[in-house]
Design a protein around this nucleic acid. Structure first.
Length: 262
DNA sequence: ATGGTCGATACTCGA
């Protein structure tokens, strides 16, 4: 059995309902993981998604901020929801497909502007969240699992438009890159996007503040698809749908895709 | 070095 999965920070699922439907119609992933839904679960416009075949949804929501959801046209049951760093935020949900594969959908805290936990509480929360992720996956050592989401860190030099200019910018600082590496190492997660596309600049986010995001191309790869080693060889066909960044009323993130043959 | 743009909410915060 083969299924295609996409992850997309949607920055308001209600405002973006038309382009979520566009993605479902044009790209038809079997599973779509959304972050920053910015909506209580009961206000997610799921009728339109169900009409397109996405009749299964699991979600965590809150008013105004955060929020994660998994839309699926394959049967899926909810398995867990973590509150790492005890923030009380809707930043994680996990579901399991009938083939036994577990899908973790994360929205890691962005971390504020200043990369110093002594002066910026949000940066400390981001590091604490990553520590709790690491400790959980080290203790659990999951199998047959996929981890996706907006991890808010661009780990590689070629995951940002300028490694040198972003070294002190939250999302690419050495302390964050190290913390993310520890999460990855905790369960030997394989970066499927980079397994498929090992060379070259690769971005999934472009700021709204650029005059012309496409021409400036000052992007970062903040959105990730990882898999446990027992299924990593099944992952292929990774791509980032850059076009979606230019759609009507776009999110500042583009969807990241991967296909798994299991 | 600075400011630039979004979205939700309610006159500000988070990204």
């Amino acid at each position: 059995m083969s299924f295609t999965l996409a992850t997309w920070n949607i920055n308001s699922v209600r405002l973006r309902e038309p382009i979520v439907q566009k993605l479902l119609m044009e790209e038809a992933p079997d599973v779509l993981c959304l972050q920053e839904c910015k909506s209580p679960v009961e206000k997610i416009p799921m009728e339109g998604f169900a009409a397109l075949g996405y009749t299964h949804m699991i979600a965590r929501g809150q008013k105004g901020y955060n929020g994660v959801a998994i839309l699926s046209r394959l049967p899926m049951k909810e398995v867990t929801s973590f509150d790492f760093a005890a923030l009380g935020h809707a930043r994680h949900i996990a579901g399991q497909l009938e083939n036994g594969v577990t899908i973790h959908n994360f929205y890691v805290p962005a971390g504020g502007d200043v990369p110093d936990r002594d002066v910026n509480e949000k940066f400390g929360q981001k590091l604490d969240y990553l520590t709790d992720m690491r400790d959980h996956f080290f203790a659990e050592k999951p199998g047959k699992s996929i981890l996706v989401g907006d991890l808010n860190i661009a780990p590689r030099e070629d995951d940002v438009w300028s490694h040198k200019q972003l070294l002190k910018v939250v999302s690419h600082t050495p302390v964050e890159v190290e913390a993310l590496a520890q999460v990855q190492d905790a369960a030997n997660w394989v970066d499927i996007t980079r397994q498929d596309i090992p060379e070259g600049q690769l971005y999934s986010w472009w700021s709204y503040r650029a005059k012309d995001w496409n021409a400036a191309d000052k992007g970062r790869r903040l959105d990730h698809v990882w898999a446990t080693p027992d299924i990593s060889n099944a992952g292929h066909a990774s791509r980032i749908l850059r076009d979606a960044r230019g759609w009507e009323k776009p999110s500042d993130h583009a969807p990241v895709f991967a296909t798994f043959d299991l």
